[in-house]
């Protein structure tokens, strides 16, 4: 079809939907401890000898039901990182900011989070980091403000 033959329109279709996701018993305990006591909990599968962080109610690898809570410290190791230099409305903070995968001491899986109080040019894989909690906590992962270098 030749270009001038087309009379195509583009229509704007805004879409907004409010969701509320149930966190379940395991999620509720994790977020409650984080909010009320600044504690970070993991969940251990004894069969696989893995401590999951964030915790889960079923081991994804062996399908066992999990009930063995493990209190993790607030310190860990940076597994990998990047520096975000562009802006997106979905970002948790303004660019530029550093974002990494942190494996807390005692956990076998890492979790993505922000890095703060850090020189963006001086971050290295393997560096030791520590959680900094927010003053006003609401019961979500951003109750940890960020992880800072030790």
């Amino acid at each position: 079809m030749k270009r001038e033959e087309t009379e195509a329109f583009v229509l704007a279709q805004p879409y907004s939907a409010p969701y509320e996701h149930a966190t379940g018993p395991v999620g509720t305990r994790f977020f409650t401890e984080l909010r009320d006591n600044q504690k970070i909990l993991g969940m251990k599968c004894s069969g696989c000898n893995i401590v999951y962080m964030p915790p889960r109610s079923t081991c994804p690898r062996c399908f066992a039901k999990l009930e063995e809570w493990v209190e993790l410290g607030d310190e860990g190791t940076l597994l990998t990182y990047t520096v975000v230099r562009y802006h997106e409305p979905t970002h948790p903070t303004d660019a530029p900011f550093a974002y990494g995968i942190i494996k807390l001491d005692g956990a076998d899986t890492g979790i993505g989070h922000l890095l703060g109080e850090v020189d963006l040019k001086n971050i290295s894989i393997g560096m030791r980091v520590k959680a900094v909690f927010k003053e006003e906590r609401e019961g979500n992962l951003l109750d940890i403000k960020y992880f800072k270098p030790i």
Binding site: S16, A17, Y19, T23, G27, G139
Partner: peptide, 9 residues
């Protein structure tokens, strides 16, 4: 039980 809000726009 806790719920986490997540509005999609």
């Amino acid at each position: 039980f806790m719920r986490l809000p997540a509005t999609v726009n």
